[in-house]
């Protein structure tokens, strides 16, 4: 089953994302900020990364940029979880290497639908 790295500094969001995805049979690894996520990404591989944008220590865009430098993460889909639905944030995200985004607030069904679409 596909393995997903879920990054968010909010514990409740992490809980929700992780619960939803595990319930759908995905393997989920959590991280609370970019630095922790990058550490985990260096020691294991993932099929998808979902990351919040605004986080302490290392924000989501920097994380995605850093992840894209790793060979194992060059082509895998990475989604931003963002409340900034404005066009320039999305543009910034894409420039950083994000595949796409899920705009908060979202419900578990929307999250799963998007992820299933991306993972096929």
């Amino acid at each position: 089953m596909a393995k997903i790295l879920a990054v968010d500094d909010s514990a409740s969001m992490r809980q929700m994302v992780s619960f939803t995805l595990k319930g759908a049979g995905f393997d989920v690894v959590e991280a609370a900020d970019g630095v922790e996520a990058l550490g985990k990404a260096k020691s294991q591989t993932f099929d998808l990364v979902i990351s919040d944008v605004n986080m302490p220590k290392m924000d989501g865009l920097t994380l995605i940029k850093e992840l894209r430098k790793l060979p194992a993460f060059k082509f895998i889909p990475m989604l931003m979880l963002t409340t900034e639905s404005t066009a320039d944030k999305k543009q910034e995200g894409r420039a950083a290497g994000a595949t796409g985004w899920i705009v908060k607030p979202f419900n578990p069904e929307q999250l799963l639908a998007t992820i299933k679409k991306v993972l096929g």
């Binding site: 409740s12 969001m13 929700m16 605004n54 409340t83 908060k104 607030p105 979202f106 419900n107």
Partner: peptide
């Protein structure tokens, strides 16, 4: 930034968990 992030997290969470007034 720290203040912003705190507000931002509450907004994101409250919207997601259906607390629309808070959001």
């Amino acid at each position: 930034n720290t203040i912003f992030r705190a507000a931002h997290s509450i907004k994101g969470g409250s919207g997601t968990f259906g607390l629309n007034d808070v959001a």
